[in-house]
Amino acid sequence: MNDITLPKAVDDFVAATNAHDANDLAAVFGDGATVGDDGKTWAGEAEIREWIQGHLIGPRVVLTPTSFADDRLVASADGDFPGGPLSFAFVFGIKDDRVTSLAIDPV
C-alpha cells in the first residue's frame, strides 16, 4: 500500500472494500457507528450495511490510499461508476480497532 502505515481499523476497511466483502466490511464498524457520505448519514448496522452495498460493493469500488494523517485517509477510488478514478478523504473515528464514525468527502 505505497508504504503508508494505517491503523488496523483503516487497513481492515480498505482491505474489505477492495475484496468486495460486505460482511468483513460491516465487521469493521463498531456498535452505534455512523457514516456520512453524499450529504446523508447512515447510522447503525442495518443502515451501514445498506450504504456498504450501494456505495462500495455494488459499484465494486477499489481504494488506493495516497496519504494518511490525523485519522484522515486520502485515497483514489475506482470502480463501476462514471468519472473514476476519483479522490476522496475518509475521516475516521476509531475506538478499540473499530470504526465509530466515518465521513467521506471528495478531494
Rank of each mutant, 00 (worst) to 15 (best):
A75R: 04
D78F: 00
G58I: 09
A46D: 10
G83Q: 08
N2D: 13
A43W: 03
V28T: 11
D38S: 12
F68P: 10
P82Y: 04
D21L: 11
A22S: 15
L25H: 04
T5Q: 09
I48H: 10
M1D: 08
D31V: 12
G36W: 01
G93F: 07
M1N: 09
A77W: 05
D24Q: 15
V61T: 04
E50G: 06
F81A: 06
V14I: 11
A75D: 01
S67V: 00
L6G: 07
I57V: 15
A77P: 03
F81N: 03
Q53Y: 00
K8P: 12
A33I: 09
D70P: 08
L6N: 06
L56K: 12
I94S: 05
S67D: 05
H55G: 06
V61I: 13
T41A: 12
R72Y: 04
G32Y: 07
V62D: 07
T17A: 15
T64C: 01
G84S: 14
A43Q: 13
A22H: 04
G30H: 12
W51E: 03
P106H: 08
D71Q: 15
M1Q: 05
L73N: 08
R98F: 01
E45K: 14
V10R: 07
E45L: 03
H55A: 15
G54T: 05
S87P: 02
A19S: 14
R49K: 15
A103V: 05
G93W: 07
D80P: 02
D97P: 13
S87F: 08
E47S: 10
V61H: 00
D37I: 09
A89C: 06
K95Y: 04
K95H: 02
T34V: 11
S76C: 02
V74A: 06
P59T: 05
T41Y: 06
F68L: 03
V14C: 02
G36D: 15
L73I: 09
I94E: 12
G83Y: 03
Q53S: 13
G44L: 06
A43D: 01
F81P: 04
V74C: 00
T5K: 04
V99R: 03
R60T: 12
N2F: 12
P7Y: 10
K8I: 10
L63K: 13
D24E: 15
A22L: 11
A15F: 04
H20C: 12
L63T: 01
A9R: 14
